[in-house]
Design a binder for these strands. Structure first.
Length: 263
DNA sequence: ATGGCCAATATGATTGGA
């Protein structure tokens, strides 16, 4: 079973690329972020025509996440626990059934948090605390569980071409990285780091300053795996070539393969 | 060394991203 995550930076601007990439990579499940549209404006039909079920948690103009799955959804639940007043569409959880049991998947778009200090950074840290609580609860279920998305977290210096440029940024501040480590310490596995020690694995290049041409990237899109998912991990990769396509997103897809009987 | 972009929005200049 192949599961991927991609911050598309507007689904309506990225449909041609998404369709081309789905045909090439053939993922079973896709976690999308920054769809930037309400549910009714999401272009379901062309995606459903490719054999995917579609679940959307949209929002006007900003944020918005979605899940695509070749297997039908047993359950779909929008929103992260811990703050019923939070109206930002950044979290969508679903369960699909395989012949050998359920797989739980989350598409998440963690807040950017800049500028720091300030309200936005406070919101990011609280959101991460909520995510830690949620993950702790879900890990008790001892099932294959994939927490995928745009984390807006550079986990370590090796995950940036120029780490010195990020030391005061919300993506790399110690409090941000501490919380990411707290997630890992619950027992989650960073799939890309579990399969490679390379120091040039990036998933985002800014549109500005010729970042792509200079390979001035950062790794901020992650798939974190429960032990029951990590045990089944056979491969992981980053489709960096997609960044050179026409009208690219500033993020590229990241994917994993899990050995699941019959998938 | 510095700045350089892109998307959405009652489309003109702002907000947000990272």
């Amino acid at each position: 079973m192949r599961i991927a995550t991609w911050n598309v930076n507007s689904i309506r601007q990225r449909m041609d690329s998404l369709v081309a990439w789905l045909a090439e990579r053939k993922p079973d499940i896709v976690c999308l972020q920054e769809i930037k549209c309400v549910d009714d404006a999401f272009p379901r039909e062309p995606i459903e025509a490719l054999g995917y079920n579609v679940a959307v948690h949209g929002q006007k103009t900003f944020n918005g996440v979605a899940l695509l799955s070749k297997l039908p959804f047993d359950e779909v639940a929008p929103g992260l626990i811990g703050d019923s007043s939070d109206v930002q569409a950044r979290f969508l959880e679903a369960i699909v059934s395989t012949k050998t049991g359920a797989v739980r998947v989350v598409s998440l778009y963690l807040p950017n948090g800049n500028p720091t200090p300030g309200d936005k950074y406070d919101y990011k840290l609280k959101w991460m605390d909520r995510l830690i609580k949620f993950s702790h609860e879900r890990l008790k279920l001892e099932e294959p569980f994939v927490l995928a998305g745009d984390y807006n977290v550079i986990p370590a210096a090796a995950d940036a071409k120029r780490p010195e440029a990020w030391v005061k940024d919300a993506l790399f501040l110690p409090q941000t990285r501490e919380r990411f480590r707290a997630l890992l310490n619950l027992g989650l596995t960073d799939a890309i780091r579990a399969t490679s020690d390379a120091d040039d694995l990036y998933s985002f290049w800014d549109y500005q300053a010729g970042s792509w041409q200079k390979n001035d990237g950062i790794r901020i899109d992650h798939l974190l795996l429960s032990p029951q998912a990590a045990d089944r991990l056979t491969a992981a990769g980053i489709d960096r070539h997609v960044r050179s396509w026409d009208k690219p997103s500033d993020h590229v897809p990241v994917w994993i393969d899990l050995y699941i009987e019959g998938r």
